[in-house]
Simulated scan of single mutants.
Amino acid sequence: MNPLTVPVVDASHASASHASPPFEAIGGEAAVTRIVDAFYRQMDTRPDARGIRAMHGPDLAPVKAVLVRYLCEWLGGPKRYSEERGHPRLRMRHAAFPIGAAERDAWLACMRAALDETGTDAALRDKLMLAFFKIADWMRNNGN
């Protein structure tokens, strides 16, 4: 996984190359963990995220751990996600859940709020959000 240059889901989601991995720029695993915690706090509290929150079980600890490992690797950090789970196969892993524009937008709103809450640099946040949009839009499997 090259950070933001070739996201693991599909090379067509490429964005500009970076001199150092976004993983370092964002603050490493500790920062990614804070972002993931903030992301799921958003999901738990935002009315527009009720639908995507319902797709998760009551205990978010396992899914948080997976998202931390995935994002760390995707951002150019340690490759623990692939070592433990293999290729992400995001569409396959999410196929059981109806993902349309509303779900995409709720996920993106939660992530944007999490990046803002954790003080992610605005320029990096904007690059990440562009890449997240491409991935989230690609994940849609429902016409809404």
Rank of each mutant, 00 (worst) to 15 (best):
N2Y: 10
P3A: 11
L4E: 08
L4T: 11
L4K: 00
L4P: 00
V6F: 10
V8G: 15
V8I: 14
V9H: 08
A11K: 12
S12E: 08
H13Q: 12
A14Q: 11
H18G: 08
A19T: 12
A19V: 13
A19M: 10
F23Y: 15
I26A: 04
G28N: 09
E29L: 11
A30Y: 05
A31P: 04
V32Q: 05
T33I: 07
T33A: 15
A38I: 03
F39L: 12
R41P: 00
Q42M: 12
R46Y: 11
R46P: 00
D48M: 09
D48R: 10
R50E: 10
R50T: 14
M55F: 14
G57A: 12
D59R: 14
D59L: 04
D59I: 09
A61T: 11
A61N: 07
P62R: 03
V63I: 15
V63Y: 05
K64A: 02
A65D: 13
A65W: 10
V66C: 01
V68F: 12
V68N: 06
L71Y: 00
E73C: 01
P78W: 08
P78S: 13
K79F: 05
K79H: 15
K79T: 14
R80I: 09
R80N: 14
Y81E: 02
E84R: 06
R85M: 03
G86C: 02
G86N: 02
H87Y: 11
P88L: 04
R89Y: 01
R89G: 01
R93V: 02
A102I: 07
R104N: 01
D105C: 04
W107P: 00
A109I: 03
C110N: 06
A114H: 03
L115V: 03
D116F: 10
A122S: 12
A122F: 02
A123Q: 06
F133R: 14
F133V: 06
I135S: 11
D137R: 09
W138A: 14
R140Q: 10
R140V: 05
N141T: 03
N142G: 08
N144W: 02
